[in-house]
């Protein structure tokens, strides 16, 4: 299987010396097409910054990012955004409050040069389990779960191959989280998507992913398969600590 996404020696920093902060330190991983990869760690461990670096949302980075075996430059072109899309953590903040669902989706479709928008939008809404009645609603007329569905529909609009998921359910209630996680699983199977998922919740990552990287202080301290994680078999002391607190929390 070919590699959908490969990251080699990624470094991200903010600020200049002497105030320079290294948020991500030589992180490398590769994801095969159709796989689902998880990044876990505490707040400040740099897991979200890795996703932001991939989408080109951070100014200073070094290393190699390869999408479909093509090297990314300093600027992301339209072809990149057609391949890679991101779903953000907080659906209350990531949707424009004065744009209707229709406008959010049609803008994305127009940007990527799709015609026939009128038939595409109901199809997209249907994909994420919303009826066509939601098309002309504003975000404040939607619940948190419905908003996140709209955010996912927007990410799906350009028919991407890779979805970057930044804590897609941490702002939602558990029962709504279950709906969104099920939806994401279905979409991955239907559209043969590749996922990179960031979460602090090990159970969520375990449910969604095949392989997991544990991050601490900007570096990946351990890579493990989800099976290993389920059996609490971590090698690095930090991942052990993380697994233990998670297990105790769930007990």
């Amino acid at each position: 299987m070919k590699k959908a996404l490969e990251i080699l020696n990624l470094n991200v920093w903010f600020g200049e010396e002497p105030n320079r902060v290294d948020a991500v330190k030589s992180v490398s991983f590769a994801i095969k097409q159709g796989d689902s990869f998880g990044l876990v760690g505490e707040s400040g461990s740099g897991k979200s910054t890795v996703l932001r670096a991939i989408t080109g949302l951070v100014p200073n980075w070094s290393g190699d990012i390869l999408v479909d075996q093509k090297q990314l430059g300093a600027k992301r072109d339209r072809a990149f955004y057609k391949t890679v899309q991101m779903v953000f953590q907080d659906p209350y903040a990531s949707l424009h409050p004065r744009h209707t669902v229709d406008r959010v989706l049609s803008e994305t479709l127009q940007l990527h040069g799709f015609g026939d928008i009128d038939t595409k939008i109901p199809k997209l809404l249907d994909d994420v389990g919303l009826s066509a009645a939601f098309r002309f609603r504003y975000p404040h007329q939607l619940s948190g779960g419905q908003r996140q569905r709209v955010a996912i529909a927007r990410a799906l609009a350009p028919e991407p191959e890779i979805l970057l998921l930044d804590e897609p359910t941490s702002a939602l209630d558990v029962s709504v989280q279950a709906e969104i996680l099920n939806l994401l699983c279905d979409l991955r199977a239907e559209h043969n998507l590749t996922y990179v998922m960031v979460s602090h919740d090990l159970a969520v990552v375990g449910h969604m992913c095949d392989e997991v990287a544990v991050m601490q202080h900007g570096a990946v301290v351990e890579m493990m398969t989800v099976d290993k994680m389920r059996q609490q078999q971590a090698d690095h002391p930090y991942s052990k600590h993380l697994l233990e607190s998670s297990a105790r929390y769930r007990a």
């Binding site: 558990v174 029962s175 989280q177 279950a178 996680l181 090990l202 159970a203 969520v204 375990g206 449910h207 989800v226 994680m229 389920r230 697994l243 998670s246 297990a247 769930r250």
Partner: peptide, 8 residues
């Protein structure tokens, strides 16, 4: 509805 860590 909660995902479990110990089993899938």
């Amino acid at each position: 509805s909660m995902p479990q860590l110990d089993h899938k």
